[in-house]
């Protein structure tokens, strides 16, 4: 498992696409918003939690199809399926690698982008916390979607169509946590729900993803 994690991280680093692209995309989306809605600080500050969460979610989506597609094309998945580690571990590990190269950098970069969007001071800690708790769910759900579409030639668009509806609860609770934090309301409920979704996804989806991969390898 460590071997697989290290390999995936090395590959992401060497290919250069892993960290950089998603972060750059997140930045660009955030920069585009003021051009769209106008530079007025009050408006931006009010919509900042939602924009930052939607931006992080889309940036996450961008790199999903790489989770399994490359390994499928070069035959690695075939060999993995006959290796002594269970496929469930493989899918969970690859989701973890995806989170380390996408979700974690996005979480760390989000406060800086919050400044650009006039996010009120009270929101910063909640933004970081909610992203840290919620993005693992995004990676795991995404890995499941990637497993479903791994055998398809042009699976990218379909992957978005399948995964985005599954992201809705995470987005709702994540953005609401920040919004409540900004308004000084209690944030326990959305944060706990977010944690619940993450833990539930990590507990169940590796099995669903492994099942999907087995079907796709047939």
């Amino acid at each position: 498992m460590t071997a697989l994690l290290l390999r995936d991280l090395t590959l992401a680093l060497r290919a250069g696409g892993g960290f950089g692209l998603s972060l750059a995309f997140f930045l660009i989306v955030t920069v585009l918003v003021p051009f769209g809605v106008g530079p007025e600080g009050g408006v931006l500050g009010r919509i900042a939690p939602g924009i930052l969460w939607v931006g992080a979610l889309l940036a996450c989506l961008l790199s999903l199809d790489r989770i399994f597609a490359l390994d499928y094309e070069d035959g690695t998945l075939d060999l993995m399926a006959t290796a002594p580690i269970p496929l469930e571990t493989v899918t969970a590990t690859k989701a973890l690698a995806h989170w380390l190269t996408t979700g974690l950098p996005l979480t760390l970069a989000a406060p800086a982008l919050g400044v650009l969007l006039n996010l009120p001071t009270a929101g910063f800690s909640w933004l970081t916390l909610s992203l840290a708790v919620g993005t693992p769910a995004l990676s795991m759900i995404g890995a499941f979607g990637a497993a479903l579409t791994v055998g398809l030639k042009r699976g990218g668009l379909l992957l978005s169509l399948l995964v985005l509806p599954l992201y809705i609860p995470t987005l709702i609770f994540g953005a609401d946590c920040v919004r409540r934090g900004v308004e000084g309301l209690p944030t326990t409920t959305p944060l706990l729900m977010l944690l619940g979704i993450t833990l539930g996804s990590v507990a169940i989806l590796p099995f669903a993803a492994a099942a999907a991969i087995r079907v796709n390898l047939r």
Binding site: I141, L166, I168, P169, I172, T189, M193, I197
Partner: peptide, 11 residues
């Protein structure tokens, strides 16, 4: 996830 969404939306 549809059921979770249902409750998330209520909330």
């Amino acid at each position: 996830f549809a059921i979770i969404s249902r409750y998330a939306v209520l909330f």
